[in-house]
Nucleic acid binder design. Structure first.
Lengths: 190, 190
DNA sequence: CCCAGAAGTGAATAATTATTCATTTATATT
DNA sequence: AATATAAATGAATAATTATTCACTTCTGGG
């Protein structure tokens, strides 16, 4: 009996991400994904019920991958600024190195594939950062602005850093990282 | 002889923007656009050669609409901070009130419809802001960080403000505007 | 008030894309 | 080594969507 090669799931995911990065969700076809993954079209349907299932399942994987990376090495007990810097850099690095995932998530957000519930789940991903920001305000580090806007401010700048590194072929050198951190930090600090 | 109703072009544009906002470029069909615009499918082909032409033409209109709004009431001779505030607020207001256009431009950027040349054109849209930021650095208002990153920082936060106002149904009150301006300004200021 | 000619229509057709399935290939088990 | 069973294939089919076109509806000019 031939056994299922679970690597193929990843091959399919990576092929999809690559194509979405290159030409968006609108440009995706099952044939293109199969070709990119080096498989026959029919094979996709062994691993996924249909196109929707593939997209939704990949979306889920991307969200989990983000959640894993964002709070790596973060200890909620550590001093505020230290913890903040770790999370900030984690998110930046993740968005840059897995830019294809970020684009995919962004595109899914405005697509017929993802429903409102799933969007809500995604938003919960930032919960530990929200808590940390609240703590930062209590400890007097941060401006007394609604955490909702503080978080948006941070996410916005980080997303744009990732776009610029990718589109303009910039490197994420320590200098670049430091300059951008300074921009963020001076923005939110009391 | 029946004469062409140029309002229809706008009807078609608005219908497309509405649908893209609701379910992304991936979800767009000519039939859906026609239905949304209250026209027959065939009518779309009187006003546009085909789907690609519709998308590209709308993209162009959106870019022009942005360029018009971004630098409204801006006088390059006025004091730095004053000019900066005007442009900043123009962009925020435009992104919020024409959020559908922002989403559309963003989605087109990652789609098979828009080519590299067109993307380059779009990026030139910010030229007057780039100049102002350079001047701000010369006059000692801003941090000595590559204008490339200063611009990215500002665009990123503004985009996220627009997303949050829209998705979470917030109002762009003077308070909200002021708080977010403070975040941006404190970030970039020397 | 008629007519020419273009706008507007939507069902028919063409093109593209998703999905299936008969067949082939591979490999665990005996 | 033979068998059984599931993976893998890709051409065939189904479904969806873009585009056309024969026809109808307007309306400006005569």
């Amino acid at each position: 009996m031939k056994v299922r090669d679970e690597n193929k799931t990843d091959q399919i995911y990576e092929a999809t991400l690559k194509l979405v990065k290159a030409s968006g969700l609108a440009g995706i076809t099952m044939q293109a994904v199969a070709r990119e993954a080096g498989l026959a079209t029919g094979t996709l349907y062994i691993y996924f019920k249909n196109k929707d299932a593939l997209i939704i399942s990949l979306f889920d994987r991307c969200v989990k991958s983000s959640a894993r990376d964002f709070f790596k090495n973060y200890n909620p007990q550590s001093p505020f600024k230290e913890g903040f810097r770790i999370i900030w850099e984690n998110i930046v690095r993740h968005r840059v190195t897995r830019f294809d995932e970020s684009i995919f998530i962004e595109q899914c957000f405005h697509s017929p594939f993802i429903d409102e519930d799933t969007k809500t789940t995604l938003r919960k991903m930032f919960a530990p950062l929200v808590q940390l920001l609240d703590r930062g305000k209590n400890e007097g580090w941060l401006k007394a602005i609604d955490t909702f806007w503080l978080l948006g401010f941070l996410i916005g700048t980080i997303n744009e850093i990732a776009k610029r590194v990718t589109y303009f072929n910039r490197k994420l050198t320590p200098d670049v990282l430091e300059a951008n951190f300074q921009l963020c930090w001076d923005g939110i600090k009391q």
